[in-house]
């Protein structure tokens, strides 16, 4: 019975995911066409003639009515065809595939760092030593408010230029691309991306631990002879669900931050691609990237919910 409910819960969320993605796709489709700009002119340059631009617009299908374009795009999308990017002269799928891979790696690295950061900060923030709490409060405020753009530039300057510990950008060295090579390239951008989400999760962990500390649970467990390590495990198990929810939401802010961080570290990911395709008014590319980002975000939220449901039976059976 509970199993059944769980499946229904996942099914409903999946349906919601598809609807959200469709909604985002539709909004982006019309929004990008509403802002002024001529894709043909950005491709052909200012020294092109109006006739040449009109010709290219026909080739790109932009002479058709907007609804014909929309349903045409939707129809091709259903068959898995993301379209063709005229500004880059190749199929959109060939462009967004590698970009998604890079952003996924960056996101995974940032998540890892954020979780470690959250564990350290959340625990230190509930320390019994006053000055430690003070320092952590201060660090937390700094991490939460420092703009990712600035953090990225400072990290770049500090650890790639002044103290050249890490590469100054790119996702891998030419002709390398092994695990350690990519990892080295990811340290700085992932850190820049992880500070705010890490601090946010740390805060959630701090609250959970502090709440727990005010109850009788931990002294009771200790009285039963549990080792400090087991105690910590219990404390963190309770703190986990809210942390995962926060993480899921923070993935959205990470995707936003990737816009800046990928540009600064010249990582060819989705964030860099968004900036570039919007400025080129490459409609098909903008649509594909926006759709992909929406799907990634919704899927991450879904995963967070599923994970929470697995961890917390009350959510699973819908009694929370």
């Amino acid at each position: 019975m509970a199993h059944n409910r769980f499946l229904r819960f996942v099914g409903a969320r999946l349906l919601l995911t598809v609807l959200t993605a469709f909604f985002v796709a539709a909004v982006v489709f019309f929004a990008i066409r509403a802002i002024p700009g001529d894709p043909a002119l950005t491709i052909l340059g200012t020294d092109s003639t109006p006739e040449e631009r009109a010709e290219l617009r026909i080739v790109m299908g932009l002479d058709q009515s907007i609804l014909v374009q929309f349903f045409g795009w939707l129809g091709r999308l259903v068959t898995g065809d993301l379209g063709y990017s005229y500004s880059q002269g190749r199929p959109v799928a060939d462009i967004v595939g590698p970009a998604l891979e890079n952003t996924a790696m960056l996101g995974a690295a940032a998540t890892l760092i954020a979780v470690v950061l959250a564990l350290v900060m959340g625990n230190l923030a509930t320390s019994s030593i006053r000055w430690v709490r003070r320092v952590i409060d201060w660090v937390e405020a700094f991490f939460l408010s420092a703009p990712q753009y600035t953090v990225a530039l400072l990290l770049l300057l500090a650890f790639a230029v002044l103290l050249p510990l890490f590469p100054a950008g790119g996702i891998s060295s030419r002709g390398d691309g092994g695990f350690f090579d990519v990892a080295a390239h990811l340290v700085l951008p992932a850190t820049a991306l992880a500070l705010a989400p890490g601090a946010q999760m740390g805060r959630s962990l701090k609250t959970s631990i502090a709440t727990l500390q005010s109850t009788e649970l931990l002294p009771a467990l200790r009285a039963r002879g549990l080792s400090p390590w087991r105690l910590a495990v219990h404390a963190h198990h309770n703190a986990l669900p809210p942390m995962i929810t926060v993480l899921g939401i923070q993935v959205g802010s990470m995707l936003g931050g990737a816009l800046f961080v990928e540009n600064i570290f010249s990582i060819p990911g989705l964030g860099a691609l968004v900036v570039q395709s919007v400025s080129l008014r490459d409609y098909t590319l903008v649509q594909a990237v926006a759709l992909l980002i929406a799907v990634v975000f919704v899927v991450v939220l879904l995963l967070a919910d599923i994970l929470n449901a697995l961890l917390d039976p009350r959510i699973r059976v819908g009694r929370a």
Binding site: V120, N123, S127, S128, P228, L231
Partner: peptide, 10 residues
């Protein structure tokens, strides 16, 4: 216990 735990986790 908090201190011990904190130290270990750190």
């Amino acid at each position: 216990f908090t201190n011990t735990r904190t130290r270990r986790l750190t």
